[in-house]
Design a protein around this nucleic acid. Structure first.
Lengths: 346, 346
DNA sequence: CTGAAAGCGCTTACAG
DNA sequence: CTGAAAGCGCTTACAG
C-alpha cells in the first residue's frame, strides 16, 4: 500500500484541498482550480456544484502552494533597524501600502543594528523567495546579497546606501540637511556649535557630520575636536558628551543633534540646565512643537522614503532593466524656537 | 518531448535547485537534502562535493517549497491597526522577538481600523497558511475566522476581545486603569470631570468609560451627559468636544483622555487656554514627562501585550489543548503634574 | 551511507 | 467545457 496520510504530517491541520473539493463536487481538479480563480469556461451548473463543495468543506486555497508553482510569492521583505522605533513606523506603513496596491504582503523584521542579524534576516527572507527586498542597512558590507540580486530578488536600500555593492538606494539629503541646520544656528549668531551623532560606521552619521563641517567652514569657523562626538545614541553616552561640550573654556552655545534619539536626550539634558542652549535636531518627532521651547528640526519624510523605495522595487519587478540609482529626497528645516535661541553670553 | 522549462515560468529567477546541485555533485537529490539540512549519515567526502556544488551554483534552499512539504510555514501573521502608530511599535517588536526565538518570521499589516480590511488581511494570511495569527480587532464580528481556527490556525486577539467568537485575548485592564485614573483626579479635589474617548464600537473605549463611571459613582458624583464624549479621535472632533466641556455653567475642571491620540490633542488644546485644567490620559507616550506640566497617564505595557500574546500562540502551536482564555495585564498610574493640578475656581 | 519514488497543494500546458 | 498528466522544489518513508 502506497503512502497516503500519516499523523506525523500536520498537513496544515487537515484542511481540505482542491482534490477533496473535486471529489465532493464530482469534477476534475482543474475545474475546481478554474472556479477558485474565476477563470472562464465553466458552466454555471458545474460552478455551482463546486461552490457548494467549497462551502461544505470550508475550503480555502493554499496560497503557499500556489506561489510555489507560480514562481512569485507576492511578498516583499523589509529589514529595518527596529520595529519599535517610531521613526520607522511611517516608513513601514508606506511600504505596506505600496505593496498592497500590487497585491503583495509584507514580511518584516529588525536588525537591531547588528550586521550579522541583518544578514541572517535578509537571507532568511531570500530563502522564502520574497519577490523583493527593502533593506535599511545595519552593516557596511552587502556582498552577501549579490547572488540573491543576480538571481532576481529586486533589492532597494533605504536610509543608507549598500556597502560594497552597487544597488538602488533611496535616502534623505543628510549632508544638505545638516549643513542647513547648522547654518541656521550660525545665522542666529552662534559661533561655538557642538555636533553629537551616531556611530561613525553609520552612513547618515558621517554625512551629517560632513554637513556640519561644511557649514562651519563656509562661515570660517574653526572646529576643535572637542565639539564633535560620534558614538552610541544611548542616553548616558549622549548626556556625557553634551556635558563635556557645555563646560570649560571652549563651551558651545548651541548643539546640533545627529538624529532623533540624540535630540530627545539633549532636550532632557538642556531642560535640566540653567542657561539657554540652542538646539537643532535631525529628524522630526511627535510633540516637538509642544515642548518649551519647541524643538527646531531638520525633518525628513520617512513615509516618502518607504514609498519611493517600494515604487522603485516594483518597477524592477515589472522588468524594467534599471541600472542601480541613488535617489535623494530633500529635507526641510522647521524652526520652532530651540534653534532660534541666541547665544548665551555672546 | 515532455514539458521541461519554459520562459513564461519565472522559476524564481532561474535559481539552481537541489536537483541541479545533485547533478553537479554527482549524487542523489536526497543526499543534497541531507547536507543542506545537516542530517547525519553522509561521508565527509560526499559532503565536501555537495558543498562545492552548492558554492559553485550559488544554491540557496527554497524555504517556500520546504514549508509546503513540512506542513508548517514557520510564519506568524499580525494584523494591527496601523503600522505607523507608535503605540504598536513595541508590540510589533515584541511579537517579532518571540516569533524569532521559535524560528518564525512575521508577516504584518494594517487594518486601518476598517473591519473589511481586517478580514481581508487576516484571511490572506490564513491563505498563506501562517501557523498563527495575532489580531488587534478593528471589527466586532470575527466569525469569519472560525473555520480557520478550527483548521488549526493558532489565533490570539490582542488589545480588544474577538467579536462573536470564543478565542484567546490578551488585553490591558482598561476598566481598572480608567477607574484609578479618574479616582486620582477626584482625590485631587475635582468634582467635574469630563471623559473624551474613542468610538463606542471600540471595546477599550467603552471599558474605559465604564471605569470613569465607576469612579464617579463611588465618589457619589453625578455625571451630566455633556461630560462624556465618544467618537472619532480626529483632532477636530476632540478639540470641539473639549471646547464644549470646558465652557458653560457645567464646565469641567479636569479631563480624562480615553487614549493616546486624544491625550495629545488635549495637551494642545489646554496649552492654548489660559486657566489650568487637569488632565490624565490613558496610554503613556514618549516625552510625556518633558511637557509642561508633565502629563499624568495610565500606562499600559504594549510590549508585554505582544509578548504574552505570542507566548500564548506558541503554546497553542505546541499542542497544548488550551481552552480560550482572557488574560488581563495591569496598568500603572504615572503622576507627572497634569493630573495633580487642583481644580480651578473650586 | 545513499538514492529512487511518492507526495505537499497547487498551476501549466495539453488533449479531448 | 473539462480533466489527466507533469511539474514547482522540497521532504518523507522506504529500500537497498
Amino acid at each position: 500500500m502506497p503512502h497516503t496520510r500519516h499523523p506525523s504530517e500536520p498537513r496544515y491541520g487537515n484542511r481540505p484541498t482542491m482534490k477533496d473539493v473535486a471529489a465532493r463536487a464530482g469534477v476534475g481538479l482543474k475545474t475546481v482550480s478554474r472556479v477558485v480563480n474565476g477563470e472562464p469556461g465553466v458552466t454555471p451548473d458545474t460552478e455551482r456544484r463546486v461552490h457548494e463543495a467549497i462551502e461544505a468543506l470550508g475550503f480555502r486555497r493554499n496560497d503557499s502552494a500556489r506561489v510555489l508553482r507560480k514562481g512569485r510569492t507576492a511578498t516583499v521583505g523589509l529589514v529595518l533597524e527596529d520595529l519599535a522605533d517610531p521613526f520607522y513606523g511611517p516608513l513601514n506603513r508606506a511600504v505596506e501600502e505600496v505593496a498592497r496596491t500590487h497585491g503583495a504582503l509584507l514580511i518584516n523584521g529588525s536588525s537591531a543594528e547588528d550586521p550579522d542579524r541583518e544578514r541572517e534576516l535578509a537571507l532568511a527572507l531570500c530563502a522564502r523567495r520574497v519577490d523583493g527586498l527593502i533593506v535599511i542597512p545595519a552593516g557596511d558590507d552587502h556582498r552577501y546579497l549579490e547572488p540573491e540580486i543576480r538571481a532576481g530578488v529586486a533589492t532597494v536600500f533605504v536610509d543608507r546606501p549598500a556597502g560594497r555593492i552597487d544597488a538602488d538606494v533611496v535616502l534623505s539629503d543628510s549632508f544638505g540637511g545638516a549643513r542647513d541646520g547648522v547654518a541656521h544656528l550660525i545665522a542666529g549668531g552662534h559661533r561655538r556649535i557642538g555636533f553629537i551623532g551616531d556611530h561613525p560606521r553609520i552612513h547618515t552619521a558621517t554625512e551629517r557630520l560632513r554637513g556640519y563641517h561644511e557649514a562651519m567652514d563656509r562661515a570660517g569657523l574653526p572646529v576643535p575636536a572637542s565639539w564633535v562626538s560620534l558614538g552610541s545614541t544611548a542616553p548616558e553616552r549622549v548626556t556625557a558628551a553634551a556635558g563635556a561640550m557645555l563646560s570649560g573654556p571652549d563651551a558651545v552655545t548651541a548643539l546640533f543633534a545627529g538624529n532623533n534619539r540624540v535630540t530627545v536626550t539633549l532636550v532632557r539634558v538642556l531642560a535640566a540646565r540653567p542657561g539657554p542652549v540652542a538646539l537643532v535636531g535631525f529628524d522630526d518627532f511627535e510633540l516637538a512643537d509642544l515642548l518649551d521651547p519647541g524643538v527646531t528640526v531638520v525633518a525628513q519624510d520617512a513615509a516618502a522614503l518607504g514609498r519611493v523605495a517600494t515604487d522603485r522595487l516594483f518597477q524592477r519587478l515589472a522588468g524594467a532593466g534599471l541600472p542601480p540609482a541613488r535617489i535623494e529626497l530633500p529635507t526641510r528645516l522647521i524652526p520652532r524656537g530651540s534653534g532660534e535661541l541666541p547665544p548665551a553670553g555672546g
